[in-house]
Structure formats: structure tokens, C-alpha cells
């Protein structure tokens, strides 16, 4: 139980949630500001994230594209590292897809299960829960931690961008869809949502490196449609999308792109913006200042 500082009312403090956390290569390196703000946010809402000990790359599209055995074994090793009884939380949509697909594949295939156990010397954990960061919004209530949520991102007009993370291959069709979760959460915090129809367009992923022209076309389309809809910023839930939207956009004076976790942290009064925003290619500070959401 905790007392509200303003009203003196006693409100309910939910129990601590504990997860193993798989950052993945993007969040660990180029998207470090995403990790920092995500950790801060979780800390404020009583969630304990413990980085998965000695995790490796999930293999991403590259292993999948050119080597089956590596594409299967990279996620397998990660699965074998998760401590029993603790759910695994993943914030990168692409890592989630690779890990979850592999987990379900092993689960449904006795021979593969045997191979996994022989190779990684661990009994296969039939009960392991692998969840996306979005899932925590079904397990906590932001209102329990924020006194006046509607005032937090007041008047900020955002275009939410999921990229292809809501698109699921047929083997994951039974998984929960998180469509609408960013809109719902951000409106709860007082932001206004700009509908623009490009929130689920793929950002181009690695074509950004290998075929920059193709990536540029899709990115420019996404950003300009968001701007036409009146958005002052884009909000992403994927570090790689975030990077692509920033580096492959060639339109003049583009709006900034924020990580969902950065806005969440700001709504919980985290004051670490100086660690995150200098890492953005398009500086969000002037816009946020204009909206009175940050002061320095």
C-alpha cells in the first residue's frame, strides 16, 4: 500500500513482476536508448528485468535466409539459458518471432525435443512463457503508478508505428495480437493519435544496408504520410525500425521518431532524456520543448 502524495488516499500497490530479459543485438547496440528507457520504465512500474545470462544473437533474417541449422540452433541455445519458472520478455519483434517460432517448433516435435536436450544438456521447459514487452500492459495498470495519466503527454500528436511486428506467419497465428496497444496506452496518457494508414508497413529491415534505395522509398512514404496526418512524431516499438526510419528518411525536416519506451518513461517522470535523445539522428528535443513536455 502506498499513500498518494497529493490526496493522501491509500492506493493498491501490485506485486513485483519478474522476467528474464532478452535484449537482442539491436537494442543492445544501436538502440541502446531503447533499452535504457525500457529498463527505467519497468523499474518504475515494479517490474524486475534480469538480462538473460550470456544470450546470443537470435540469428535474425540472415541466419534464416542462408543457413537452416544455424537459424535453429541460435535461438535454441537462448531457450536453454532461461532460468526455470521465469517468463522470458523480449522487446525486439524480430527476436521474439525467431525465438517463439523455434520454441513452438521444438514443443511440437518429439525428435527435435530430443535433439535439443542432447545438444544443450537441459530438459526442454514445456511451461516456458515467451512474451513481448506489450504483454505487460495486460499484467499491470498504468493508473496504479501515475496519478494524473491524461496530463502526461498532453497535446502531443503521435503516429504509432508497429512495422511488421503485428504480422504473423501462419505458425504463430494463434498468438495474441497486440494491435492497438500503443494507441490505447498513449491516449490514456493524453496523447492524440494521428491515423495515417502506414503503421504496419515494413521498414525494409536489412534492405536498408543492402538495398538502400528500396528502403528509402518505403521509409519516406511512411514518414511523409505520418506528417500529412499532422503527427508531430512517430512512435516505434522496434529498435531496428527506429534506426531505419531515422537513417533512410531523405525528406526535408522530418518529424522525430521516438521509442515507445521513451514516451512511457517520460510519462512516469523519468528524467534521463539527456542520455537518450543525443543518440537520435533527428533531434526530438525542440518539438518536446514546444509541447512543454521537457524543460531542458
Amino acid at each position: 500500500m502506498k499513500k498518494s502524495s497529493k490526496t493522501g488516499e491509500i492506493y493498491y500497490k501490485p506485486p513485483k513482476l519478474k522476467y528474464s530479459f532478452f535484449p537482442g543485438c539491436s537494442l543492445k547496440a544501436s538502440g541502446h536508448e531503447n533499452t535504457m528507457s525500457l529498463m527505467k520504465f519497468c523499474d518504475r512500474v515494479n517490474i524486475e528485468l534480469k538480462e538473460l545470462e550470456d544470450w546470443n544473437c537470435c540469428g535474425s533474417s540472415s541466419a534464416h535466409s542462408i543457413n537452416h541449422s544455424i537459424a535453429e540452433n541460435l535461438p535454441m541455445r537462448n531457450i536453454s539459458l532461461v532460468p526455470k519458472g521465469v517468463p522470458l520478455l523480449i522487446a525486439c519483434p524480430s527476436c521474439l518471432l525467431r525465438m517463439k517460432s523455434m520454441y513452438l517448433k521444438i514443443k511440437g516435435d518429439e525428435a527435435l525435443k530430443q535433439e535439443y536436450e542432447n545438444r544443450w544438456g537441459q530438459p526442454f521447459d514445456e511451461e516456458l512463457e515467451i512474451i513481448h514487452f506489450f504483454e505487460i500492459f495486460s499484467r499491470i495498470r498504468l493508473e496504479d503508478y501515475i496519478e494524473n495519466p491524461r496530463g502526461k503527454l498532453k497535446n502531443l500528436k503521435v503516429a504509432v508505428y508497429y512495422g511488421c511486428m503485428l504480422s504473423m506467419p501462419p505458425d504463430l497465428k494463434d498468438e495474441k495480437s497486440y494491435y492497438g496497444i500503443m494507441e490505447k496506452t498513449l491516449s490514456k496518457l493524453g496523447a492524440e493519435i494521428a491515423p495515417y494508414g502506414y503503421g504496419m508497413r515494413c521498414c525494409g529491415t536489412y534492405l536498408s544496408a543492402a538495398k538502400p534505395q528500396i528502403a528509402q522509398t518505403v521509409v519516406n512514404e511512411i514518414v511523409s504520410r505520418a506528417m500529412e496526418a499532422g503527427a508531430e512524431c512517430l512512435v516505434t516499438a522496434c529498435s531496428m525500425c527506429h534506426l531505419n526510419l531515422e537513417i533512410r528518411c531523405t525528406i526535408k525536416n522530418p518529424i522525430p521518431t521516438l521509442h515507445f519506451s521513451e514516451l512511457l518513461s517520460m510519462a512516469l517522470d523519468v528524467k534521463d532524456q539527456k542520455k537518450w535523445f543525443p543518440r537520435h539522428i533527428v533531434d526530438p528535443v525542440p518539438m518536446l520543448k514546444k509541447r512543454g513536455l521537457i524543460t531542458s
Binding site: 512495422g163 504473423m168 506467419p169 504496419m200 525494409g204 529491415t205
Partner: peptide, 8 residues
């Protein structure tokens, strides 16, 4: 790129 837009 395997974005699954089509398969969805």
C-alpha cells in the same frame, strides 16, 4: 525480407 505482411 520475410516481413510476413503477405502470409498474414
Amino acid at each position: 525480407v520475410g516481413c510476413n505482411t503477405c502470409s498474414s
